[in-house]
């Protein structure tokens, strides 16, 4: 048998080549994940030199069952799901529509528009937050002026928690739609032009072309985008930190974990470092992402097999 890496000990070569990558994966990803699951059973503060006590499931009991705080945690969990559903759906649709439009060679300056829509992605959460804080400045900012024109006024990010939450959904979509669009664009460009020509010769209209040619052949891009959007939105927290801070009625699970784990405070109020508790909350989020991610992935894989064969 002709084996590329030869015979005997030479067969070890591919494994040795893989070793740095595997080691990197263990150190950067799997190791911390395993450590988090272990720390969730302790009262660790995350401080070097601090005593760590094994407390079993106490963190989980507190997070899931202790008083009104646990109900607030479930509210945050619900808010996380709502955030994910809205962000995933809207970002997916906008990304798809934008990609289809900007894939049309008849559109002038389409490279300019592609760049324009992708630009927010490269800015990072802090800059994105700053831009929108200025845009939504309630004392004479552009959006305040627009509201004023219609006889309305709002505190935007600092007002009603529901309104602030809606703004973060909008900003999250604005910030990440460029990636969705680019994945769809790359998918669209892999569809052979002959398919469109054949459909045209068969007399198909635009909707029929999209439904019977574009949509089925975009399946790999659809799957990638859906999974990325779902997981990304379930884990989102940076924009909440930058735009709103720690405010009742707006926290999602990701931000709650950050605030608890790192003792984030309001002003000079002293809080505690509770990384064991935050680790337990992280495990809850992990289970949520795992269950949703695996379910969606299974569904998408079956769909792909059905369509692509």
């Amino acid at each position: 048998m002709n084996y590329h890496f030869g015979r005997g000990k030479s067969r070890l070569t591919p494994y040795l080549l893989l070793l740095p990558g595997i080691a990197f994966y263990f150190i950067i990803s799997l190791g911390p994940s395993l450590a988090t699951s272990i720390f969730s059973l302790t009262d660790t503060t995350g401080l070097k030199g601090a005593t760590i006590n094994w407390i079993g499931l106490d963190n989980y009991k507190e997070f899931l069952f202790m008083g009104q705080a646990s109900k607030d945690n479930f509210d945050a969990l619900g808010r996380t799901l709502i955030f994910s559903v809205f962000v995933t759906t809207i970002q997916f649709l906008f990304g798809l529509v934008t990609a289809v439009i900007l894939n049309n060679p008849k559109i002038r300056a389409r490279n300019f528009f592609r760049t324009l829509f992708f630009m927010p992605v490269i800015l990072g959460a802090v800059i994105q937050g700053l831009i929108w804080s200025l845009f939504l400045f309630p004392l004479g900012g552009p959006m305040a002026k627009l509201f004023e024109f219609f006889g309305l006024r709002s505190e935007f990010l600092g007002g009603s928690p529901t309104e602030a939450f809606i703004w973060v959904i909008i900003i999250q979509i604005w910030a990440n739609m460029g990636i969705t669009m680019m994945i769809f664009l790359s998918g669209l460009q892999t569809i052979p032009s002959e398919m469109y020509e054949a459909a045209e010769m068969d007399g198909a209209n635009n909707w029929q072309v999209f439904k019977n040619v574009t949509w089925p052949l975009l399946t790999p891009s659809v799957n990638t985008n859906l999974l990325l959007n779902i997981i990304g939105s379930l884990q989102a927290w940076q924009l909440f930190l930058v735009l709103i801070g720690y405010r009742n009625g707006t926290q999602v699970l990701g931000y709650l974990i950050y605030a608890v784990g790192f003792g984030q405070t309001s002003g000079s109020v002293t809080s505690s470092f509770r990384q064991g508790y935050a680790a337990a909350a992280s495990m809850v989020l992990f289970v949520l992402v795992l269950v949703i991610g695996l379910s969606v992935q299974t569904f998408l894989r079956r769909r792909e097999e059905r369509i692509m064969g």
Binding site: G245, F262, G263, Q264, G267
Partner: peptide
């Protein structure tokens, strides 16, 4: 000020 304890840690 809100981030002082986080960064200190």
């Amino acid at each position: 000020a809100n981030d002082l304890s986080t960064v200190t840690q």
